[in-house]
Amino acid sequence: MTIGEIVDAVQGEVMCGEDRMFEVVEYAFASDLMSDVLTIKMDNFLLVTGLANVQSIRTAEMSDVRYIIFVRGKAVTDEMIDLADENGMVVIRTDYSMFKTSGILYSAGLKPVY
């Protein structure tokens, strides 16, 4: 799926990386547990999370994750956006829940990491 298609599918708001809507991502992983994200060997997947803080962005940076969706309308702070921007990430926010977001994206063809 392209990032633009993902944004449309979850009625998302792009917080940074607006110029990268044409990029394609194949896999996704949904978790609020950053320790779990850090065990994933694959990189460049989409992270779906409800944990909105600087450490989520840091974890994505360390894991070479370039696309993040924050679910349930979580507030994304300027500090988070600055760090994401610095690391070339696309940050999306949606009001949908983790379950709904994951269901929609799975149905649309995004593959699970496991």
Binding site: M34, S35, T39
Partner: peptide, 11 residues
């Protein structure tokens, strides 16, 4: 903060 699940040292 999303940590403390007992996965750090093993990882």
């Amino acid at each position: 903060m999303g940590f403390g699940a007992g996965m750090g040292l093993p990882n």
